[in-house]
Amino acid sequence: MIRTPILAGVFTALFSAPCGAAAQTDAQAVRVSDATGPAQPAAGIVNLDPLTVSGPQPGPGLWRVSRGEHDLWILGALSPLPEGITWNADSVVDLVGQSQEVLWGPRFVVDADVGFFRKLSLGYGMLKAEKNPDGATLEDVLSPELYARWAAAKQRYLPRDRGIERKRPMVAAREVFLAAIGEADLGFPKIISPPIRAVTQADGIKETTPKVSVKIEDPAGAIKDVRRMSLNDSACLEATLDAIDRLLPRMITNANAWATGDLAQIRFDQLDRRNNTCADVFSNAEFSRKWGIPDIRASTRDEWLRAAEASLAKNTTTFAVLPLEDLVAPDGYVARLRALGYEIDAP
């Protein structure tokens, strides 16, 4: 068995649960604090001050979920974060060492039975599936207004990437977003899992990653479907450009606040719009219905809750890591656990 995403690393919104994707709509603006934040800057590419946070930082407090003598401690992870920080994880390391199980965030996995040479041919198909059907360019598939915005963003963040003009809007959105947050000194430093896994491996503590798995019997056929499909993914690119134009300062504020443990300063507002919009390109498409792809966010959340309840029932102490925005959303994990009758202590 080879476990392979059909469009590995490209359409991650389809085949995995994004670490930063919240499960609420844009109308349900999520706040860790109800305090009114600063007004958003006007539309247009903004110049950003450098990040002020670097070096060792305490990170955020933990949520405690309890029933009787059984506790589940949850760390809310955030991305992107400042590239230059390190995390002082001493208190978390101590708590993990007292736990019987570590529960990671849920994953969505596509299984495909393929041989070695067939896997190589699928890789070629994946590369071609990144491109617009019939050799179209972004200028061909985007409205004139949206293409003008894209061209300005590309000139700033991806000036040397000529090939991206033939990529799907969804792929272009991902590349320009990564380039923009990189210019803002934000990224995805691996600071959370290494100290936790050092303890679990040293002490033999069980690790659990809840998974929703879908098996596709004809991966080559699925790739052909993606290559021929005309997706309405211009909305994904538009939402991404909106995030870059207006919300990078909020991302920086959130990243600094997470690093320093100041959760009251973190607000998500419309930051989840990009994740939801891009995920919905495939989640609501004919492709998902044909190949049996369920609602990814709903199915993975339900699977994690089942695993969390099982852990709470059998363990005295369980430690978990979840995306912060999924944790605090109005219909997120904390709200769902509270509705199930668990006692919740927020940090």
Results as ranks from 00 to 15, higher is better:
residue 3 R to N: 05
residue 3 R to G: 01
residue 15 F to T: 07
residue 18 P to C: 03
residue 20 G to K: 04
residue 26 D to H: 04
residue 36 T to P: 01
residue 41 P to E: 10
residue 49 D to R: 15
residue 49 D to N: 14
residue 59 G to W: 14
residue 67 R to Y: 00
residue 70 H to K: 13
residue 74 I to A: 10
residue 76 G to W: 06
residue 84 G to V: 06
residue 86 T to M: 03
residue 96 V to C: 04
residue 100 Q to R: 11
residue 109 V to Q: 07
residue 113 D to L: 10
residue 120 L to C: 05
residue 128 K to R: 15
residue 129 A to G: 06
residue 133 P to F: 04
residue 140 D to W: 02
residue 147 Y to R: 14
residue 147 Y to D: 07
residue 148 A to H: 05
residue 159 P to V: 11
residue 161 D to I: 03
residue 168 R to M: 02
residue 173 A to W: 00
residue 176 V to Y: 05
residue 183 E to M: 12
residue 185 D to M: 08
residue 186 L to Y: 06
residue 190 K to P: 04
residue 194 P to G: 10
residue 198 A to V: 05
residue 208 T to A: 10
residue 212 V to R: 12
residue 216 I to W: 03
residue 217 E to N: 09
residue 219 P to W: 02
residue 223 I to C: 04
residue 225 D to H: 13
residue 227 R to S: 05
residue 228 R to M: 09
residue 229 M to T: 15
residue 229 M to C: 08
residue 229 M to V: 12
residue 231 L to N: 03
residue 242 D to W: 03
residue 254 N to S: 14
residue 254 N to R: 12
residue 258 W to G: 06
residue 260 T to W: 00
residue 271 L to W: 02
residue 274 R to Q: 12
residue 279 A to Q: 12
residue 281 V to A: 14
residue 287 F to D: 07
residue 291 W to H: 09
residue 295 D to V: 08
residue 301 R to P: 00
residue 310 A to M: 07
residue 318 T to V: 08
residue 327 L to A: 02
residue 337 L to E: 02
residue 340 L to K: 13
